[in-house]
């Protein structure tokens, strides 16, 4: 029973990692760049929701605020792409890595200035109550997180595989110049995918905030989401979710069964092990290079 309990809380955590990792993978799939600020995007999405929903700020009903949050975060993602990331369009991934790390710092600072550094909790309808099944106590939030994540992953996966836009995004990442020749508006596509990543980050943020307290350093769990994305194989959406689940499940078990101090190492040790033995993740997308 204890094992099951740990497993479920791990899965719920893992879903949040998986959602952030989805954000990485989205942007990576469409622009071949990695957004090191995705964790901070998530944190920002959570705080925007908190600012709209909580009675001490705007106090809008949750379900009314939800579309507003998505619009705000989508616009923000799009604007960031236009203002900042266009400047490094077509350049090496290193430039984007550095820019997004800097963006993360700026977002963290701005959020701290606006909403303060103390932990706060979101008035989320998902955060209420537990469900008991026999001895098992399941948080409603945990169940919601798992369901929403599964739906999101499925939707995004289908979007990339089967819609015209999704295919255009994949083409734009594989070869920007060839995509131009095929009539794909590569820059606009990039803007779209950043907007989409903003929305996914908002979903992750709301779910994260429903599970517990929120403060500006929450974005650092983005690093664990990296581990998730890498374990799954950057560039694979189901892989990102699977990686997130693996990292999420390992954590509570390591905390329970390993001596103290070793448990926080577990996700990173796994990350390094995966990189050593399967350098491109479990769902590898890299093939041999032809010159």
């Amino acid at each position: 029973m204890e094992v099951l309990q740990l497993l479920i809380s791990g899965l719920a955590n893992g879903c949040v990692y998986g959602l952030i990792a989805l954000g990485f993978v989205l942007i990576y799939k469409a622009t071949e760049a990695v957004n090191f600020a995705q964790g901070d995007f998530m944190m920002l999405g959570a705080f925007v929701t908190l600012g709209l929903v909580n009675p001490e700020y705007a106090g809008i009903p949750f379900w009314l605020a939800l579309p507003l949050v998505f619009i705000i975060m989508g616009l923000l993602g799009y604007l960031l792409d236009i203002v900042v990331l266009r400047a490094v369009f077509g350049q090496s991934q290193v430039a984007v890595i550095i820019v997004t790390i800097a963006l993360g710092f700026v977002i963290r600072f701005a959020v701290g200035e606006i909403w303060g550094h103390e932990p706060q909790s979101l008035r989320s309808p998902l955060a209420l109550g537990d469900v008991r099944i026999g001895d098992l106590v399941l948080g409603l939030a945990d169940i919601a997180v798992i369901i929403v994540t599964l739906i999101m992953t499925l939707l995004l996966w289908q979007f990339f595989q089967h819609t015209k836009m999704g295919l255009a995004m994949q083409a734009a990442s594989q070869n920007q110049m060839a995509a131009y020749y095929m009539g794909i508006p590569v820059k606009r596509i990039q803007g779209m995918v950043w907007a989409l990543a903003g929305i996914v980050a908002a979903v992750a943020g709301i779910l994260y905030a429903s599970k517990g307290a929120l403060d500006p350093t929450a974005g650092f769990i983005g690093i664990k989401a990296f581990a998730a994305a890498v374990i799954g194989g950057f560039g694979s959406l189901p892989g990102a979710l699977l990686g997130g689940l693996i990292v999420g499940v390992i954590e509570p078990f390591a905390a329970r069964y390993l001596p103290p101090g070793w448990s926080q190492i577990a996700p990173y040790a796994l990350l390094i092990a995966v990189l050593l033995f399967r350098p491109h993740g479990l769902f590898a997308q890299v093939r041999a290079k032809k010159v």
Partner: peptide
Amino acid sequence: YLKTERLR
């Protein structure tokens, strides 16, 4: 212009 590192 950037090209992918995957699927080369």
